[in-house]
């Protein structure tokens, strides 16, 4: 019962935050509200018992993304320009997409159902072999690090590649100006 209450409260706050983000023109406030949105999502993940996901959402969504958005904000004006076009077409697209997504959930298994396809594939096998193979208290870390070690290696490589791409793009464009300003300045 209390979980339902918490869910309702979190979802109401999510909705309020989303509406506030749409309505507000001050980009600083919008950035802070997106951070709040991420934090509320993290709370929802906790009620779903996905603590690792919640942790990531709180650290990345509410933390680093907000800082990067603030960094971008210092390069741009602080207020959003008022929209000149009619919002009817975007509204229509959003409503149709939303309706399609909700229609899609009709086919999904009930929340927490043991018969869900996701629990029929490799999951039971992992859980059965885990105590013998790895046996660490946090099964999520064990599965991600060992059974799915190749995936995690790929993810690390993606993070690395993304970082290199950003450094290359932002580094090159400022290189000429930098060199004139300060020989030591780098990156």
């Amino acid at each position: 019962m209390s979980v339902i209450l918490i869910d309702v409260a979190l979802f109401s706050f999510l909705l309020l935050t989303a509406f506030a983000i749409v309505r507000l023109r001050n980009l600083f406030a919008v950035t802070m509200l997106t951070s709040v949105f991420s934090l509320l999502s993290a709370g929802l993940f906790v009620t779903l018992d996905a603590v690792d996901v919640a942790f990531t959402e709180a650290a990345v969504g509410a933390g680093i993304s907000t800082v990067l958005l603030l960094g971008t904000l210092s390069l741009t004006p602080h207020d959003e320009k008022p929209a000149t076009r009619s919002p009817l077409l975007p509204m229509l697209v959003v409503f149709i997409t939303g309706a399609a997504l909700i229609y899609g959930t009709m086919d999904m298994p009930a929340f927490g159902s043991a018969d869900a396809p996701i629990h029929q594939h490799v999951g039971p096998d992992y859980i059965e072999r885990y105590p013998h193979d790895i046996d660490m208290p946090n099964i999520v870390t064990g599965i991600l690090g060992s059974y799915r070690g190749f995936d995690t290696l790929g993810e690390t490589a993606v993070v690395f590649t993304a970082g290199i791409a950003v450094i290359l793009l932002l580094h090159r464009s400022t290189l000429g100006r930098r060199r004139r300003e300060d020989e030591e300045e780098d990156l």
């Binding site: 680093i64 210092s74 690395f160 970082g163 950003v166 450094i167 300045e185």
Partner: peptide
């Protein structure tokens, strides 16, 4: 890797501003 990339991205953004 994650620490270094996050810091590098921040530095790349912040040093433009």
């Amino acid at each position: 890797t994650v620490f270094a990339v996050m810091t590098a991205i921040f530095m790349a953004f912040a040093s433009r501003a």
